[in-house]
Write a protein that binds this DNA or RNA. Structure first.
Length: 601
RNA sequence: GGCCCUGUAGCUCAGCUGGAUAGAGCGAGAGUCUUCUAAACUCUAGGUCCUGCGUUCGAGUCGCAGCAGGGUCACCA
């Protein structure tokens, strides 16, 4: 039997063939990559559709005739083309069962199907995400950030990039001083150990405490006739916090000791949340180490003449020619601002990793900041300024609007995860088939189902869009959800286990496949291009939607097609092979989302 | 007010470089488990793709204008 190579994507093969036909028949020259093929709509026969409208003028044919002539030629010259039909200007092309079966056989057993090998010696893509403040625990907004950051990193890896994850912890500043001050005043020496409260929550408690007392002071001042804006500045607590920040910057030992102590509580808390979310980093930067960076760059900019100093000593960048405003880079007292340090850390990071690209997973409220950052880097003469990519994501909103910590409407990350685990356990007790599992394994199952639901819920939405979370409705486990896909996977694994096979040998000559099998094979066939597309768009959502399509197609197939019960061994083994490959595809796609798949549930 | 983002079914969301009669899930209604896991499957109802104009053989998709919602324009980060 002749060996065929199915490595060649059937779409590019068709594109080349069409390009050739257009040239030979009508002397129309079109690059194969420019030939537009789409998958044929369900209500028509065929696998791929060529839209011929763009060529009718040059070919001087009616759309129908043109489509027919191309169809005839394709069928004659491309062995994989089985049949064709023409509806208006649409040429629907059917690919032979032989090709699809061959393709399915080719990819069977490839544990990394859909994922690319990492290109060796490629410059790493450095992805910054998470970047929390250390004055309060993580909430749902941070969850979206962390899940996106992790997932986009996995996605880029799956597309062949070398990826480094970094976190830039905002561990200094006035907000931390507020928590510290409140703890000193009202804390009675409380610690995570003495109270049993998770460290980040304990520190967050004092941040709230500060705000409470501060507001009281402001209200008192206003009641005594002071203007509100002035009262906010003059409140003793605020002045004390500012004094504390100054002492911190001067290296005051007491302040630094307390700062280290309370930050260490927060880190222990964050680590627990990170572990629970399954995210991590290759390198963690601390703003206390990097906040002074960037000043040299400012000096360089002054020397280059791209920045200027005002009479009061402050340094600015004039971006009005770019349609933006003037941007402050050094305060009049010579201290740096957010932008200054971000310039510095960008350079640091670029040099630390020899980065080919710098990705920042940061909310869309900072779109302006990153626009400015790129512009200034370019003005400073860094040719890699255009390698800075701001992965701007939308906010998570509640039914009554934005989350506001002051109004107590934040959805706490740890609470949400705990709720999800609770729901997973209840659902599992009701529907689950997990008698064989130990208590330990069952606990793990609840965890991966809970996180599967949460992660999928968040990641299936296009990153750039705001999304809505309704705490009252909780997150679903049915329909277009993580657990739906996990369930599909568990079912498949169950069948494959029962078959006892790990290799699938069958005679694929003249094996016929039905519509549902064909649908599945076609979906598998498209996986590499979906991953590629998703990576180019930095969009895990595209992978999530793909995984859902695969699971849905499989469930429909599973519902009315015998697999283990199939009496013909040849067909049975083929179907088992297909099952096994679908499981692999689902596992790989979901791993890009950071979602684990259960062997049974 | 300037700039940026978003607007698709009752609700939450898909819809890749413009292509056929715009798709899912939830919710609503009707079916399917003595048979490979019913967290599933099948069917029904549900649409002025915010509005208008334009480009095109063809617009949910591109352009302009308007409307609505959000963000941002700090010597905060």
């Amino acid at each position: 039997m002749q060996l065929k190579c199915y490595c060649m994507n059937i779409e590019s093969l068709l594109q080349q063939a069409v390009s050739k036909v257009l040239d030979e028949l009508y002397s129309i020259s079109v690059e194969p990559s420019q030939v537009v093929l789409q998958s044929t709509k369900k209500e028509f026969a065929g696998d791929y559709t060529l839209v011929v409208f763009p060529y009718v003028k040059q070919a001087r044919r009616s759309p129908e005739v043109l489509a027919d002539e191309i169809g005839v030629r394709l069928k004659k010259t491309v062995s994989e083309v089985d049949a064709y039909n023409v509806v208006k200007g649409f040429l629907n092309i059917s690919i032979s069962d032989d090709y699809w079966v061959g393709f399915a056989t080719d990819i069977a057993g490839d544990a990394h199907f859909g994922m690319r090998e990492t290109v060796s010696n490629s410059k790493p893509v450095v992805v910054e995400y998470s970047s929390p403040n250390t004055n309060k625990p993580l909430h749902l907004g941070h969850i979206r950030n962390n899940l996106l950051g992790w997932s986009v990193s996995e996605l880029l890896k799956a597309n062949g990039h070398n990826v480094k994850r970094v976190n830039l912890v905002n561990d200094r500043g006035i907000h931390i001083c507020k928590s510290m001050l409140a703890w000193l005043r009202y804390g009675n020496g409380e610690t995570p150990e003495s109270t049993g409260i998770k460290g980040d929550h304990l520190v967050g408690k004092y941040y709230v405490e500060f705000d409470k007392h501060y507001k009281e002071q402001v209200a008192d001042l206003v009641a005594n006739g002071m203007d509100e804006d002035e009262a906010k500045k003059e409140a003793p607590l605020m002045k004390e916090a500012q004094a504390m920040l100054k002492r911190w910057e001067d290296g005051d030992k007491d302040v630094r000791d307390l700062w280290e102590r309370m930050n260490s509580w927060v880190y222990a808390g964050f680590d627990e949340t990170y572990r629970s979310l399954g995210v991590g980093f290759d390198k963690i930067y601390y703003e206390s180490n990097t906040y002074l960076l960037g000043k040299e760059l400012v000096q360089k900019g002054l020397d280059m003449g791209v920045l200027y100093r005002r009479d009061d000593g402050s340094v600015w960048c004039d971006l009005t020619a770019d349609g933006l405003d003037e941007k402050l880079l050094l305060r009049r007292d010579g201290t740096s601002v957010y932008m200054t340090q971000d310039l510095g850390t960008a350079l640091l990071r670029h040099n630390d990793f020899g980065a080919g690209q710098l990705v920042y997973v940061v909310g869309n409220e900072q779109d302006y900041h990153f626009k400015v950052l790129k512009l200034i880097l370019a003005k400073l003469g860094f040719d890699w300024a255009d390698k800075v990519y701001h992965l701007s994501y939308g906010m998570v909103e509640l039914p009554n609007g934005k989350m506001k910590s002051r109004e107590g409407t934040v959805v706490d990350a740890d609470d949400l995860i705990a709720d999800m685990e609770q729901t997973a356990e209840e659902t599992s007790r009701e529907h689950g088939r997990n008698d064989e599992l130990s208590d330990e394994e069952r606990k793990h199952l609840y965890h991966i189902l809970a996180l599967g639901a949460l992660k999928y819920f968040i990641l299936k939405v296009d990153p750039s869009k705001n999304m809505l979370f309704n705490p009252a409705e909780s997150i679903d486990f049915n329909g277009n959800t993580g657990p739906f896909i996990q369930y599909t996977y568990a079912r498949i694994r169950s069948i494959v286990r029962k078959s006892g096979l790990s290799e699938f040998n069958f005679d694929h000559v003249s094996l016929k496949i039905d519509d549902k099998e064909r649908e599945i094979v076609k979906l598998l066939h498209s996986m590499p291009s979906v991953i590629d597309q998703a990576a180019q768009n930095f969009s895990p959502a595209m992978v999530a939607n793909y995984a859902y399509d695969v699971a849905k197609a499989f469930n429909s197939f599973y519902q009315d097609t015998p697999i283990l019960r199939e009496q013909y061994a040849n067909v049975r083994v083929f179907r088992l092979m297909l099952c096994d490959t679908v499981a692999t595809a689902l596992r790989n796609a979901m791993s890009i989302l950071g979602i684990e798949m259960p062997e049974r549930m």
